[in-house]
Structure formats: structure tokens, C-alpha cells
């Protein structure tokens, strides 16, 4: 599958994921590496005084970024289901454009482990990092979902 086709496939999955659309998630593909871009809005705020993104938004962006990266590295008949997620909140997330990337740590036959990070203005100053485990199953009939 070429890069353009893979990117179209990722965008189609995001389009079918209403929650990802609520977050305003978009994706770019550079070779095999996914980069997510989220134009955050006031609707995603958890602390109105700062204001700061809700912890649930940050955790969700990490899980979706990892899921998209995993999707790039899965066979077409593989389906992934999120098993668990560990999130470290490193800085408060501002209501500005937020980027994400993920690394596949290991992909076996039945499970995959990924690490993901989010940043805003400076890639060297991440706002959060996370580790996720996914269950992998082979099924061409099952609908393709991100998590």
C-alpha cells in the first residue's frame, strides 16, 4: 500500500470515529511515522481558570495517536482493541494546536505495545507521554476501529 493510500485509510478511520472528530483530530503520515494534529477548542477544557485541556482529552489523544501508528504497522486483516493505557501528565495542555507521535515498542502475534507523546509549541517539551497495550486479532469481517 503506498503512502497516499495509507493516509486515506487513516483519515477514513478517523472520519468514522465520532469521538476523534469531537476532539478535532487530524493525521499526517511521513513514511511509516504518524503525526497527529489537533486544533483544540474551548470545548476540550478541563480547568477553565488556566485554561487547560481536560486530562481525558490528553489521554484520548495519546491513545488515538498510538492506535493510528499501530494501524500503519498492522496487516490489513488485523484488528486492534485497547487493553490498557498509562498516562504521565508532564505539563498543562493549553488550548492551542497539539501534536502527537507514537513508537511501536513491540508487536507480536496477539498483542502490541506502543509509547506515545504529545507536545504543543516545542517538541522537546512534551505535555504528556503514555504507554498502551493493544490486543490483536485477525478478522477481515470485523469492522475496523481505532481502539
Amino acid at each position: 500500500m503506498n503512502e497516499g493510500t495509507r493516509l486515506d485509510r487513516l483519515k477514513a478511520i478517523i472520519d468514522s470515529d465520532a469521538y476523534a472528530k469531537t476532539l478535532g483530530l487530524d493525521v499526517e503520515l511521513r513514511g511509516d511515522s504518524v503525526r497527529t494534529i489537533t486544533n483544540t477548542t474551548e470545548d476540550l477544557v478541563g480547568n477553565v481558570n488556566l485554561p487547560a485541556l481536560h486530562g481525558g482529552v490528553v489521554g484520548s489523544l495519546l491513545m488515538l495517536t498510538a492506535a493510528l501508528q499501530l494501524n500503519v504497522q498492522m496487516a490489513e486483516d488485523e484488528r486492534a482493541t485497547l487493553l490498557d493505557i498509562d498516562v504521565d501528565y508532564l505539563r498543562s495542555g493549553r488550548v492551542i494546536q497539539t501534536f502527537g507521535s507514537a513508537t511501536l515498542i513491540r508487536k507480536g502475534r496477539r498483542a502490541a505495545t506502543l509509547a506515545a507523546r504529545l507536545w504543543q509549541e516545542d517538541e522537546q517539551r512534551p505535555i504528556a507521554s503514555g504507554r498502551m497495550s493493544f490486543l490483536l486479532q485477525r478478522s477481515e469481517e470485523a469492522p475496523l476501529t481505532l481502539v
Binding site: 478511520i13 468514522s16 470515529d17 465520532a18 469521538y19 476523534a20 476532539l23 481536560h54 486530562g55 481525558g56 482529552v57 489521554g59 484520548s60 491513545m63 488515538l64 485497547l82 493505557i85 469492522p143 476501529t145 481505532l146 481502539v147
Partner: peptide, 17 residues
């Protein structure tokens, strides 16, 4: 909070939030 158009399940992100 739906997982996808074709799967009528709660999205894990919504549960996490």
C-alpha cells in the same frame, strides 16, 4: 461517545475522560 459509525460501543477515550 460512540466507538465508530459501525460499532455501537462506548469509546475508550470517553470512558477514560
Amino acid at each position: 461517545v460512540r466507538l465508530s459509525k459501525s460499532v455501537d460501543a462506548y469509546h475508550p477515550g470517553a470512558i477514560l475522560a
